[in-house]
């Protein structure tokens, strides 16, 4: 009886140490109702890009049109803004949008989108 119990115990230890040979299941083949999604995911199909424009500190109060478009020319925003003010905008874009075309008065510039942010400054950084 003791030998049998010992056999059962050792067998249990042995099998508990055997590595599972299951291949990971590709959940992407499953139906949407079969899998767990991340609790923080909000299912948004668009991105929000925070655009920061640094104006000229103490500069003149010149107001002019500010416009943002995608590289494909789709208009995202337009308004009338002072060039001496700091401006923050939150633009809705496609997740694949990684460049924004800014037109501020006569100035045209292409801003790169990185980690949901894009920025521009009238003042060049000091060397």
């Amino acid at each position: 009886m003791k030998a049998f119990l010992l056999f059962v115990l050792l067998s249990g230890l042995f099998f508990s140490c055997v590595k599972d040979n299951f291949e990971p299941v590709d959940q992407t083949d499953n139906k949407a109702t079969d899998v767990f999604f991340d609790s923080k995911f909000d299912w948004a199909s668009t991105n929000n890009v925070e655009v920061n424009i640094a104006g000229i500190p103490g500069g003149p109060s010149i107001v002019t049109k500010l416009e943002f478009k995608t590289l494909e020319g789709q208009k995202l925003f337009e308004g009338f803004f002072y060039v001496n003010e700091n401006i923050t905008l939150n633009l809705v874009t496609l997740p694949t949008t990684n460049k924004l075309v800014m037109q501020f008065g006569q100035l045209t510039d292409t801003l790169s989108v990185s980690n949901g942010k894009a920025s521009f400054s009238f003042v060049e950084p000091e060397n």
Binding site: T28, T33, F41, W43, P95, T96
Partner: peptide, 22 residues
């Protein structure tokens, strides 16, 4: 069910929007 019509829907959702954004 949407995942039968849109074959990359589950992949998009599981990646929290990082993959198959289109």
């Amino acid at each position: 069910i949407i995942s039968d019509a849109y074959l990359n829907f589950v992949s998009w959702g599981l990646s929290k929007g990082a993959k198959n954004q289109d």
